[in-house]
Simulated assay, not measured.
Amino acid sequence: MAMPMRRTLVVLHRATCSSLMNAEACLDVRHPGPFFLPVRTKKRYFIPPAVGMKGKIEMNAEDRGRAAGVVIRQEYLERPINIACTAGVFDAYIPPEGDARLSTLSKEGLKQRTEQIRQSAGSQLAIRKIKEHDSLFSTKDFAERAQEIFIEAHNALTQFNKEKLHSLVTERCYPEMTRGNRFKTIRWRFVESLEPPRVVHARCPDMVSKGNLYGQVTVRMHSKQTLAVYDRFGRLMLGSEEQPKDVLEYLVIERHLVNPYGRWRLHGKIVPSWAPAKDPIIKTVMIPGPKLSVGEEFDASSIEVPQPEAVQWYK
């Protein structure tokens, strides 16, 4: 008796569910959605300042950023490194005082001779290393080649040819040659060579790693040159275009030996401590004029230009 009753109830339940589903499909009854949907908004990193803190310096800004969830990146003091050239002159050549005119019998002359022997021994070892990477290197021909690089670099400087100047000087020498020449006019000319240039010093340092070699060769050049520098108003600041001067220079030529496409470029100059002081630069100054009232015209004939006082320059 119990089993037929249970079967009857199951059949009635199925029939009722199917009828309800058909009725809902016919009437297209939809259940209303929720009025509020949980949506995650954008995370706010900005925290408005507190009342009365406007114009004051927050001493603990890093802690406030961490509390707000902001990750503050640590600042590193990084220094850029350029491997195309070195940052200076390694074991710079010390020119003898008076260009080796002291007698070897004196104490100073004997000290100069000892320093020359020590530097020449290191130069021979450096020249051997340079010849291992540059088979065409020769101390006899390199001095003339260095003089040509020097002349071409200064001609490119006077013509403001940046592309050519970059190929003739290193990244260390370029800012030293172009600093302060933006509004100036440079007139430079190589007249003649008083003495044939010669190689006096050579070094082969390495940088960053042990096998990263650089060749630095110091060339002594004694020549006659003319130099004239004009300011942006066309007034002469330094030198003269007609009067040549004898110049004794020690040029440092460098090359990245490991780089197969490297080339010899001007790296810097060595100025000895006994060298004479440079000529002073004549600067252009503005002479204040008279104060004119409204409607008054300026009369140049009634104004006397004050003459500068004579100053004795000691060299």
Rank of each mutant, 00 (worst) to 15 (best):
A202I: 08
R118Y: 00
E97N: 11
P244N: 07
C204Q: 09
V252A: 03
K43P: 08
P32S: 10
V208S: 00
L292V: 01
I130R: 04
R179T: 14
L168I: 09
R265K: 15
E24M: 14
Q307N: 04
E58A: 13
R220H: 12
V258P: 05
F137M: 01
R118P: 01
Y93E: 01
E78K: 12
E249G: 08
H256T: 07
V169I: 07
L77R: 15
H267L: 02
W274I: 06
P34N: 09
L227D: 06
L257T: 06
T8S: 00
L37E: 06
R145K: 12
G262W: 01
V285T: 11
P95G: 07
G65M: 06
S223P: 03
V11Q: 04
K184T: 09
V200P: 00
L165H: 06
S103T: 10
Q74I: 09
S209K: 12
K111C: 00
E176R: 15
R6Y: 01
M221G: 15
Y230C: 10
M286I: 14
R128C: 04
C85I: 03
H201P: 02
F160R: 15
R265E: 06
R118D: 06
H166E: 12
P276L: 09
H166K: 14
M207F: 08
M53R: 14
E176A: 14
V10Q: 14
E297C: 13
Q159W: 07
L110W: 08
T158V: 13
G55I: 03
M5K: 15
C26W: 14
T41C: 13
N22E: 06
G122V: 05
L136K: 14
S106C: 05
G239V: 04
S209N: 11
V169F: 02
E148V: 06
E152V: 12
L266R: 09
E163D: 13
K278W: 02
F90L: 00
R30L: 04
R203W: 04
A300Y: 10
A100Y: 01
G65W: 01
M21D: 12
M21N: 14
G180F: 01
N212D: 02
L102E: 14
V10Y: 09
R203D: 11
K129F: 05
S19G: 10
L37M: 06
